[in-house]
Computed example of a mutant assay.
Amino acid sequence: MSITERLPASPRRRGLVLVGAAAAWITAYQLNGPLWDRLLYDAAGLDPADRLTGTIHFFCYDTVKITLLLTGIIFVVTVLRSYMSIERTRALLGGRREGLGNVMAAGLGVITPFCSCSAVPAFIGFVAAGVPIGVTLTFLIASPLVNEIAVGLLFSMFGWRIAALYVAAGLLVAIGAGWTLGRLGVQRWVEPFVFETRLGGRVIDSTAGLTPAQRIQMGTEEVATILRKIWPYLLVGIGLGAVIHGWAPEDFFTTYAGPGNAFGVLVAVGIGVPLYSNAAGIMPLVQALHEKGLPMGTLLAFMMSVVALSLPEMILLRRVLRPQLLATFIAVVATGVTAVGYLFNLILT
């Protein structure tokens, strides 16, 4: 039996079920910290000042906290995003000129469902629909960079100001990088078969006509799908964060990437570009490094470089982009992210 079939047919009862689920989520989130305090400190008798205890507490607490945050964020945003599809986005951007088109593409990239596995079909579909290369690349940068998981986790851990700065910076990087790539005339480095693809007929909106129950089912299924995909990276990220939190010397990271090192942002971006993870997996590491004294600008640049230039997406994009364009794409985005890191360090000091 599907989730839609299990939901009450009455809108009122369905609303009560959602309210009950939200209340259970809030309760679990509020009890997460006290629960691990009681289990580890009171029941198990571990010393709160011990490094190993701190590592264990960080891992257990953050695993539950981030899983709860991911569940809530993904469900809510998926339901909202069910009113916007890749097909509708492509139709809105078709024929748009660069400039305004880049701004629109960045905004649509934030609200449109997109993942690395759809990078190639999205790229081909956009180009075939008449969307300029630079505008298409803006969309491909903005969609994974300014995603609901990154923004939601930043808001929950560091507050609305940092989350808002991240969104603004991510949009600027996407718009600036896409516009720059378009000005460089990089279409000559796109594989020829992309331009030979033609779209026939009108654009079909795959999300049109969905019922509220079907949108709820989409949200629930998306939660399960994403958690199945990212749980290894999530645990690795939390594990690394826990080790850094409990064992890394206070001055180790500040020496090489702290405010006293003029090359700290470059070091962070250089490490982040080849590193594959996602917002959920990298966030515990960002939190632990922040506790060790790394500036927020350096950390956000590190996070952006990991999220915006993920290795799987670059491998997939190689099918439609020649090596010259792929290298230029990485260089332009990495330059924008580095600039953002230095700017944030100036603003937030």
Rank of each mutant, 00 (worst) to 15 (best):
R202M: 10
P192H: 14
A168I: 15
T211D: 14
V236N: 10
P212D: 05
V173F: 00
T225R: 13
I175W: 01
A169N: 10
A208I: 05
W179G: 00
W189N: 11
A242E: 02
A213K: 08
Y233H: 13
G246M: 14
G159I: 13
I204C: 11
D205V: 02
L235F: 15
V203M: 13
L227C: 08
P192E: 15
A208T: 04
A164W: 00
L184A: 13
I244P: 06
G209T: 08
P192I: 04
T225F: 10
Y233D: 04
R198F: 01
R228M: 01
Q187I: 12
A224K: 06
T207K: 15
V223D: 07
A163E: 07
G178L: 02
V223P: 01
L240V: 13
L240H: 05
G209N: 04
F193N: 14
V173I: 15
T180N: 06
A242K: 01
L184Q: 12
L181N: 02
T207V: 06
T220D: 01
R183W: 05
F193V: 06
L235N: 04
P249M: 15
A213R: 07
R202N: 14
R183N: 11
A177R: 04
A169S: 15
A169D: 09
G159S: 05
V203E: 13
M218C: 08
R202L: 14
V167E: 08
V190T: 15
I238G: 00
D205W: 02
A177E: 11
A174N: 03
R202P: 09
L172D: 12
A177V: 12
I230V: 13
V243H: 07
G178N: 13
Q217E: 15
P232A: 07
A163T: 04
T211H: 04
R183F: 01
G200R: 09
E196C: 09
R188P: 02
T225E: 15
A168T: 13
I175H: 04
L165C: 14
G237R: 01
I162F: 03
P249A: 07
L199W: 02
A163L: 08
V186R: 03
Y166C: 05
A248Q: 15
E221R: 07
F193R: 11
A177C: 13
